[in-house]
Each structure stands twice: as C-alpha cells, then as structure tokens.
Design a protein around this nucleic acid. Structure first.
Lengths: 347, 347
DNA sequence: TTGTAAGCGTTATCAG
DNA sequence: CTGATAACGCTTACAA
C-alpha cells in the first residue's frame, strides 16, 4: 500500500538491501547505483518507515524528555520553553527526534518513562528537573539506561551525568554583588527545599554572608511555596522586622515579580528603599518594574549541552559520566542601589 | 536478549499469539489462561516492544506536536507550557504518547513534520499555532492526515478541524468592558498581523468601537513586533498624541507587561491615568503592577479539547471536521477604572 | 560492489 | 478458546 524499500528496489532494478545501503550512505556502493536508487526514491516519494527501521536496528534516534509534574506551578515558568529550545537544537543537529512525557503525579511520570524506555521508543532520556528523592533516576540507573539530568542530582553526584550551573557560586556572586554595593542586611527568598537548586542557592547565600563577616540571621531567610498567598505573608513579615533587610536575593525572577508586588503594596520602593537581585534572567526580568538585576544562568545552553552530551553517551556507550557546569553572569538593571546611609524607617 | 512475547509464551505454556491476545485483552480467551499469562509477564518483567507493535498494527498511539519556530520570541510565552498541559492530559486519558517537533525555520519544521508523518511515528498531529500561509497545513491536508489546529486557520475554515476562542467576540467584550466604564478613547495594541489571533482581535476591537458609535482612529492602533524596543517607541508615540487614549486593550498579557513598563517611564499611572485590559490571563497578570484585568481564554482547555478531538478523528476516520469554540471571560483586577472626568494632561 | 535470506517483536488471519 | 504462520518494512551478516 505504502511505498516501501522494495518498490524502490524494483524500480531501480536492484536488491532491497542495496536500497537500504544507499539510505545509510554506505561507502561501498557505486556512485552510479547510488544515483539510480536516489532517483527512484524521488520518483516514488519514498520515506523510510521508522518503526521498521527501529525494530531492525534496535535503536531509535530519539530522545525522551521528562517534564516535571504538570500540577507543579513551576511548570508555568518560562524556564521550560527556553531549556526545550536548547535541547531541541542539540538534538536536531544530530538528527535526533524528541519524545515527551508528562504526568500529573510522580507515579504517572514514572510509568510513562518506563513505558517509553522498555517500549524502546527512545535511546536516551533527559530529565528536566532533579527532585530530592527521584524514582525516575533510580529506575534509569538500575537499568543502566543512558540519561542526563539538568540540574544537580541529590545523591550519586559522581555517577550521574548532569549539566548544571554552579548555583552555590552563582548565588554567592549575587550576594557579594550586594555586599559590594554596601549592603549588610540581606535577605534570601527561595522556593521549596525539595528542589536541589534551592538548597544550593541558599548555601551560596550563606557562604557569602559568612565570608563577609556579616552575622547570619535566620529570620532573613524565607522559603515561600514559590509564589502566591504564602509568599506574600512571608515577605510582609520579613519587612516588618525591627531591622528589615536593605537588600534581597530572590531565587527566581518569576518569584521576584511577586516580591516586587508585595513590596509595592507595602509602599517600599525599589531600589530606593530596598535592592533586589533576581535569578535566571527570564525575559520578564526586563519587563518588571523596575527592570530586575538578575543572574543569567544561560538556560538555553543548559538544554543544548544536555542533549549534546546525552547523544554522545548514546553513541559511545562507555563515555565516562560527566558533570558540565554552565557559566553564569550578573546582568545589571535597575533594581539595585547602595543602601540608604540612614537607617531605613520601618513600621 | 530482551524478554519478548515468545519468552512469556514459553513460560506460560501457550502460543505467542495467545500472549498477544492477552495483551490486547481479547474477550475470547479463558480467564484461566489470562491469569497464567499475566503472571508469566509479571515474572519475566515483560514490556511490549512498541516498534514491533507499531509496525505490525500500522498504528502508533502517539500524537505529534508541532511547535512554533523556536526563534520566535513568542515561544517564550507561558501560553505554551499551559496548552501543553492540556494536550498532555487529553492524550494521557486515552493512553496516547506525545512526540514533539520544533525547528529554527519554517523549512526545518516542515521537514520534521514530514519525517514524523511519513515515518509513521504518529497517528495524528496537533498544530500549536496558525500562521497566515501555512505549508504544514497544506501538506497535512493534501495527505489527508488527521490533524487539529489550535487557533483559526487562515483559509478553508470549514475543512479544518480546529479549536479556538471566539477571539473577535472576546476582544469585543474587552473593549466594551472599557466602554461601559465610560471610556471612549481606547487604543489597541496587538502583535504581528501574520498571526490570525491578532487579526481577529483587531476586528473585535473595531466592531466594539463602531458599534458604540465612537469614531475609529487609526492612530490608536499599534502593532508592535511583540515587545522590545519597537513596542516602547510605539507606545510612547501613542501617548504623545494630542488626545491620547484613556484606555488600552492589549492582545497579550506578556505584551501588556511591557506596556505597563513604558507607561511607568512616562509617568502615566495605571489605572488612574489610563486603564488597561490584557489578554490570556497568564499567571503573570496577577503578578503585574497593578494586577491586570485580563481576558481568560482558557488555555488549558484549548489544549485538552485539541487532543481529545484529534484522537476521536484518529479512531473514527470519518469523523466530520469540527470547530470547537472555547469560552472566555473577563477577570477583573486592578488595572481599570473610570476615565478622569477632566481631560488628561498630556505634553 | 551487490544480492540472498534471516531476523527484529508484534499483530492478524486462518484453521482447528 | 487456542495454535500455526504469514505479514509489517527494514537492517545485516553471509555469499557471490
């Protein structure tokens, strides 16, 4: 019914295997027949059946993407489209296709991954988030199935190929940026401690504080459940301390937007009354009021390197496990200034 | 090497075909052997090879997603993660998997689609954007391959199954909302006219204006290349007209954020000096300053219905072409107010 | 350099 | 209700 390799063979007057070899661009086939076959393919509008090919060759030239739970608010973060672009570019360069799995719960996700792996739909998997206790990782490791993680694994750091930023360093840099501006009362606002990024960034913050000889105040640290209600409260409480911070590092621009909002309601001006450094340098950092100084973590590159190294791993099965660190840099905009010389009035 | 249907057959003491039937849950197989086989599968950890299955059955239980060009800034819009959630939910309900294609240019995208369709990787395709002259649509139509479009097709509206909002109506509603508040000088800010949504929304705006007997001013209409530089200029110019608008409808929240920004720089307050209605009701509409009144177009539902109806089409080949219209509603927040009684000072 | 033929792991058509 | 056996469309030794 559909045009197959045999039809092409007949038309070109060669054996099916020859056609197959032409497709694979085998070096040991005469230029003459190559042309003949190619023309026949053209004439018939031939396209290889990928299922047949995959079945016979035991490989698929496809990567599986594991997205975070779709119930997660974080899913809305523009981080994902961007990282996806990177992955896609890396894959396309090597002619790999992308297969996607999502799910509403951890269990659904794991099931989808198993189906796709055991079903031999993909040759490797890239994980878009690293959670603290990740069953998907355990599964993949146990089966020795090629995969790479975007972010840092919770454990077995040495045994899992991953691409990540140096988040400790990045947040340390951000904090020190504020310290250099003259701030010493610096608050930290981060997301759930279930995410490794948060843990790392918090650590970087602490390092900077300690290193500068500022005393670390526990009440300067907030973990809001991303944004929404809870966050508002927390920020409010923070600003009503007797000595509220004069600067804030926020672990994500999206979150920073919410913070900006709350601050505005409280009548606190940015950057006059308080300075803010965001993270990720999302497009919306530019669009915020005021435009946010933010740490650019090169999201696209994160994705690009992930698919690149996954493909390497697939094509060379005993590639060593690697850890790729993507660089970051602070992008200065208008949300930071030197602290007021006088004590900031509160209450 | 891998455990196959044959291994299961041997262990369960039945023929391979029987195992296959058990997998398909064929009604004409005794409960006894069903159990026996299932246990064998369990014991061996059997998982069907999907490539083999697809090859033999001439169908894949997979949907293809066609994303917009990754070079597009619009790709960053949180619209996509959300619509994807909807698609994914609809697919998962019917046990369909998702295959994704992207590309940096229209050509790359078309090639990817052809490969995936002819390669028989998917049973149907959902298109996430509708462009004015869409080669992908032409291709799919010519091959009579099942697909559904999210948005409105440029032509052949009657022959293409699509799920969309009534964007004309939605924008008319938004505009009339402002009119009811007392505004008569209302500006329109939209994206590229290459996108059908923009065309529709512009039309809705015009309808409302005409219907209210307000005279339509051409200089109240702006098409910025989404956001960035160009947009800023345009908004600036708009506000420096002798009679600047007292209200603005903006075709996308993301864009509205940029507008808000420019307005702020100009020292124009929202909603005191000017009212704004956004579109799409993205998460960030809530986080904007002030929180944006926005038209919720039910993005998730758009995706959900798309995959649902695509699957219907796949499973019942002569399903009639359908047009699904998803409802919208205005979500009031703080970006609108009645116009100042006095003329707004400009300069 | 090219052809022959045996898989790859399922499903589906016949019989029985 | 169950078992042979022929596809499905391609790759890949092994021959020639």
């Amino acid at each position: 019914m559909n045009v197959t390799i045999k039809d092409v063979a007949t038309l070109a007057n060669v054996a099916p295997s020859t056609v197959s070899r032409v497709i694979a661009d085998s070096p040991r086939i005469s230029e003459a027949t190559k042309q003949k076959v190619k023309q026949a393919m053209e004439e018939l509008g031939y396209h290889p059946n990928l299922n047949a090919r995959n079945l016979a060759s035991q490989s698929t030239k496809a990567l599986g993407l594991v997205m975070p739970s779709s119930k997660d608010v974080g899913f809305q973060n523009p981080f994902f489209p961007t990282v996806l672009q990177g992955i896609s570019d890396g894959a396309q360069e090597k002619n790999y296709a992308l297969h996607m799995t999502t799910g509403k719960s951890e269990k659904e996700i794991l099931d989808a991954v198993i189906q796709m792996v055991q079903g031999k739909r993909v040759d490797g998997v890239v994980l878009l988030t690293s959670k603290v206790k990740d069953e998907v990782i355990s599964y993949l490791k146990a089966r020795e199935f090629p995969f790479v993680l975007i972010g840092k694994p919770y454990k077995d750091v040495e045994e899992i190929t991953h691409v990540d930023n140096d988040n400790v360093r990045a947040m340390k840099d951000a904090t020190e940026y504020l310290i250099k501006l003259g701030h010493s009362q610096i608050g930290f606002i981060g997301g759930s401690l279930d995410l490794i990024v948060t843990v790392d960034r918090l650590q970087g913050y602490k390092k900077a504080i300690v290193h500068a000889g500022i005393d670390a105040r526990k009440d300067y640290i907030i973990h809001q459940e991303f944004l929404r209600e809870g966050g508002q409260e927390a920020v409010r409480a923070l600003m009503q301390l007797e000595h509220p911070p004069s600067a804030l590092v926020v672990a994500d621009d999206f979150m920073a937007l919410g913070v900006l909002n709350t601050l505005d309601e409280l009548g606190i001006r940015v950057p006059e009354d308080i300075s803010i450094v965001g993270f990720n340098n999302l497009l919306l950092a530019e669009l915020a009021k005021p435009p946010l100084t933010s740490v650019d973590i090169n999201i696209f590159e994160l994705g690009y390197q992930a698919s690149k190294s996954l493909i390497q791993k697939i094509e060379n099965r005993n590639e060593p496990t690697k850890r790729l660190i993507i660089s970051h840099r602070i992008v200065e905009r208008l949300s930071c200034s030197q602290p007021n010389s006088g004590e900031m009035e509160h209450k």
